[in-house]
Design a protein around this nucleic acid. Structure first.
Lengths: 337, 337
DNA sequence: TTCCCTTTAGTAACGGCTTACGTTACTATT
DNA sequence: AATAGTAACGTAAGCCGTTACTAAAGGGAA
């Protein structure tokens, strides 16, 4: 049978409340008593019952991480970038003394009331892509309910929402600059530019800015939609090629897209980077192992995780929402040089 | 303020216990009453407080996943294979109605008393590599404490422990068979063969079995230690090459090792698969994107996750521990053909 | 009508902990 | 000596559900 604080109290000859205090190192209990209690607790292999503690103190010391995947993938791989985020968030939580509840969700579901409301978690981290409009609606709900949450991604306009995100705009700008510096003139952009994927849109805006600044007109024919996956990148690039569009550089809106694009290019007999220089975005582990290795904009997932967790805890403790942009760092590899 | 079952009881004109029953669809409450209660609950946006429920019912409907990483990596990438496992476990938990608490641990820590004991989780899933001896010791502790747990990996001898694992032996055998069928004669094995890494050892045993069966003597010079990482595979292979060992095939004990090995081979001016055929193990996402794409033994992570979760739940419900081996499936790609 | 069985609710006892408040025994103050 | 202050505990009231036990009402059989 599991020992309770009463068992300890009995053996120590003190009241149960004293046990509770002693175990929490309260200054209200005498050092001697405290040591005795703690010794007995250890002996009995006692562990505080988290449910009881949480119920009483009305907080769980737990953070819920909701990971949204794009709807097409049921059993397929999760984007490695989010996996990396998950890793750093896990670590950050551990450091801050919080437990982490992980849950994969689809946007359509009623996730917005499942954690904070039930006292299972003190706050929620939102991570992932998804239908942006539906998403925004749910964020409003969360705000109305007074749920503590923070999200990763591009800023949400017209709303007071804590957001940690990458500086996609500058990242997109710098990547394009890099391509131009390599002497490339016609740079394709594979990835949607619409507001449904705000991160991609911002990268696209950076791309446009760079081109315009260099006096190059943005050519709509050089942009083609693609969402998140290797397959999407492959198909879109294939499409571009069969349409006979000419380009000597290709900017994939995320690494997976770029990897798919490289596959399409190589199948088409094009050499990378000789015929087409390719860049991606994210710096997923794979990027370093493609052939040639992929130039990309690294998002600092370690920092991102730390900021997400630290700021969420601030929010839990009553601070106002705040927003941070993390700079992206260009990692130059062979695919563009 | 958050609504409690008392609030609902008051509005519905029934007792709080009736509310509790109604919300749990107990047959002890009249249909009409039940619908009324449920309607009010919905209206008030009521959610059961998990802490109270768990405290009372002495179970948490939560599973804890402990992920062990090899000690060298602090902020580096987690092995993609485990990430894939994590994904499938998450999904399996969701399907079974369990929440998932994720925690990264180091073997050295006191993880063996942190979850089940505190009623935070009903059971624990152990995942990852690590110092096997220390690990085994902790497993004994867990067993003594009556903790409900299950693990992924090679079987642990002399112990009653539920284990789900891949059939590493047969996988290793088949991969080697595959290499032999390609006409390769001298096959290097990069990966430790010691009992510290039981998965690797089993793969090595399969490798030996295949060679012997083909009448080829196992050459100790062709085996070199390497643990888990790309870097380790790179260094080990480099070592092999500088020692002037001749081989026309290379079996990496896991994909990351093989990827590192391929890097070393290519730097050394060797063509894959022409000069050296390479195979790996795991089928991590990267394996499909290396150049050339890596032939490997796919571990069915989806099935693995389901089995881990399903069997853990059985154990939680009082069933005896049981063990399953999942077959590996050879995925033939260009690196060996 | 009487007795018994069902159906449907209500009452109240927990689950194990935190913490506000009350109590006791001393020491310090005037 | 009377009073105040303090350190160190004890008492008990919750936190919010679940569920064993009890009760009331209605129906059918004898």
């Amino acid at each position: 049978m599991k020992a309770t604080s009463f068992d300890i109290a009995y053996r120590a000859g003190v009241s149960q409340s004293t046990v509770s205090r002693a175990l929490r190192n309260s200054p209200l209990v005498n050092e001697e008593t405290r040591l005795k209690v703690q010794a007995i607790a250890k002996e009995l292999n006692y562990k505080v019952d988290k449910n009881a503690r949480n119920l009483r103190s009305q907080q769980s010391n737990t953070i819920a991480l909701l990971l949204f995947e794009d709807p097409t993938s049921d059993d397929s791989q999760i984007n490695p970038f989010f996996m990396s985020m998950l890793g750093s968030i896990t670590r950050a939580c551990a450091l801050e003394g919080y437990d982490l509840l992980v849950s994969f969700q689809e946007m359509a579901n009623d996730w917005h009331a499942e954690y904070d409301d039930t006292n299972k978690a003190d706050g929620i981290i939102l991570l992932g892509y998804g239908d942006y409009l539906a998403y925004k609606e749910k964020l409003v709900h969360l705000n109305e309910q007074g749920t503590h949450f923070i999200r990763w991604g591009a800023e949400v306009k017209d709303m007071q929402v804590s957001t940690i995100g990458c500086d996609n705009y500058t990242g997109g700008y710098q990547l394009t600059q890099h391509l131009l510096e390599q002497g490339r003139k016609q740079c394709a952009f594979v990835g949607t530019s619409s507001h449904h994927a705000p991160e991609f849109r911002d990268r696209y805006r950076g791309y446009c800015q760079s081109l315009e600044q260099a006096g190059i007109e943005v050519d709509a024919n050089l942009q083609i939609d693609a969402l998140y996956t290797e397959e999407a990148g492959y198909i879109a690039t294939k499409d571009l090629l069969t349409r006979g569009v000419k380009f000597d550089a290709l900017f994939g809106a995320c690494d997976l897209i770029s990897i798919g694009a490289m596959r399409a290019l190589q199948e088409h007999g094009l050499a990378i980077p000789k015929d087409v220089a390719v860049v991606g975005f994210d710096d997923i582990p794979m990027a370093n192992f493609t052939n040639p290795a992929l130039t990309t904009a690294k998002q600092d997932t370690l920092l991102a995780g730390q900021l997400l967790v630290a700021n969420l805890i601030k929010i839990i403790n009553g601070d106002a929402p705040s927003t941070f942009l993390i700079p992206a760092k260009i990692i130059e590899r062979q695919s563009s040089m």
